[in-house]
Design a protein around this nucleic acid. Sequence first.
DNA 1: TTGAAAGCGTTACCAT
DNA 2: ATGGTAACGCTTTCAA
Lengths: 341, 341
Amino acid sequence: MATIEDVAREAGVSISTVSYALSGKRRISDDTRRRVEAAAAHLHYAPRASARALAANRSEIIAVTAPRHADTDASAHMAFAMEVTIAARAHDYDTLLLVQDDALSGMKRSANSALADGIIVLDVAAHDERAQLARTITCPTVFIGVPDDTEGLVCVDLDFEASIRLSIDTLIGQGHTRLALIGHTQETLAREPNYPLRIQREFARHARARGVEFAIVNPETDDAGEALSTLFAHQPGTTGLVLSTSNPVATSLSAALSDRGLAVPGDVSVIAAGMTPLLSRTPLPFDALPLDPALTCPIAVEILVGLIAGRRPSSAVTLVPPVYQSRGTVAPASAPSNQAH
Amino acid sequence: MATIEDVAREAGVSISTVSYALSGKRRISDDTRRRVEAAAAHLHYAPRASARALAANRSEIIAVTAPRHADTDASAHMAFAMEVTIAARAHDYDTLLLVQDDALSGMKRSANSALADGIIVLDVAAHDERAQLARTITCPTVFIGVPDDTEGLVCVDLDFEASIRLSIDTLIGQGHTRLALIGHTQETLAREPNYPLRIQREFARHARARGVEFAIVNPETDDAGEALSTLFAHQPGTTGLVLSTSNPVATSLSAALSDRGLAVPGDVSVIAAGMTPLLSRTPLPFDALPLDPALTCPIAVEILVGLIAGRRPSSAVTLVPPVYQSRGTVAPASAPSNQAH
DNA sequence: TTGAAAGCGTTACCAT
DNA sequence: ATGGTAACGCTTTCAA
């Protein structure tokens, strides 16, 4: 491997000139710069990462801590890790992957040894041990997801509350007055009471504020059929469905609806809110306000890069506004064409 | 951040003594070693990764290049990346994740800048540009998967041929004489002619060698029902099914079989061969000889670590023998208890 | 516009 | 059993 000294010799200049010519941090005459570039190309020169990191006190590496919880969807998990990696590359950073047992210890290690310049925290739980750790280290850290206690943390997440309000408003705008939320399974709710619960609260709050009837169901199993039975027993005549649940439940919804003889959007309008589309699988066939990794990850990385450069974030928690994706599953509550005259 | 010099001062020894005491590369008296350890702990000392890498000429990082092809299953993709990461940690290596556009360029970069000590290549295609690159760099590289031309490469993969033979032998051992392989979809076969084709060849070869009737079907769609129709039209009375196909096809098989009134294993015995179990989803309910990342990745990492340490691998292509997992879907072809007397 | 040289924090060789 | 110190390859300050 060629070193900067080899390049300097070949170009007939000093090593500092090579360094400046290649980094562009100082003005170098065109002639000299070209000679340096030619020599570098000729020798296949690439700065040694470790030497550069030591001298510049920056590794150009971002650590990504991504443990896997019991109900983590592997596909979503990968999507987040990939989007972070892609976003990081756009800022010339590489990403170090920390998983499982090492998600916490690796975070400590990367910070203490200056292995990484910054840390992205994925798959954030309500009570996350990494939150406490983040407060004790000096290494800039950004959470994708919001733990219960955000004191001293920098977090990025979808604005779930807004996505719920927007879903309700959209349905009401189409004349629906009997709505329902199909929420997370009771199992998920028991383990992860933070954001699923916040969604349910906001749904109840906003539906009440808008003065419509509403119901909330939490499936016991991964099958939407059971949830629909419960729902229509409690609140017959529901015509607007907001979906914010696990992917298995959502996937089985279309079949469950048609089993009950309900057409979408003829009889029921459906919007999925705050759900993550699965990689390499057909997206849910519903109008959606998704928690898209491609939305939150680049923003999180951008903030992290800013922190590394010494820029304070404008706010501790950044809520990314949801983007509406239409797939034709929302229709007027009682379209004239659908009714007998 | 405390440096080695701080520790040396606090412990009242020289920095080389600190280095040796902590690395264990030289015998240090118990007393001194304890003082050094106490000082290091007290100051929360951790060697700076970049300094260590520069001096030792080793980064303790393995790059993982993992592009995503059209038919890559995100779940399997993540599983491999995770298993490599876990295996790497067991050898004190961290992993750098290289995806998409950067899978190739990142590989170049890691090698040229000595960012990584070694490279693991995932999601290997028959004609993989990374194969050619691997031959031009000096950075030790191990492929998980086998490209067409393995000249000069080190590869690790499941012994697919063995898993097919073992499947056939198991079914024949239970008295089945009419077998079928449900292979990959025609779409996959068109794009990736290497290992799916090898599987089909081995199936035909071995079934012929064992003197049994056999058929091979390649589904046109992701639905197993269509494949079964084709199969039973061509070869009625098939009682032994070997599954080596895409996960969607395999997932739909149970339902498709019961749609045809076929019980497993009463009427048909089923073995899945060379398929990758999906993370966080119930495994396929069939006897299996899986391509388990937990099987191949640790071996690949072990070989890579050996290469880094200068050990030549015993062979260029390591085929990992499949492990049989029984789930009760194989039964005798005509068990007395199943027949009328 | 360029060069010289002082670090950066380790490791590992050569002494003692 | 321990210490001194060159070397690793780069960045960046200070000089010219």
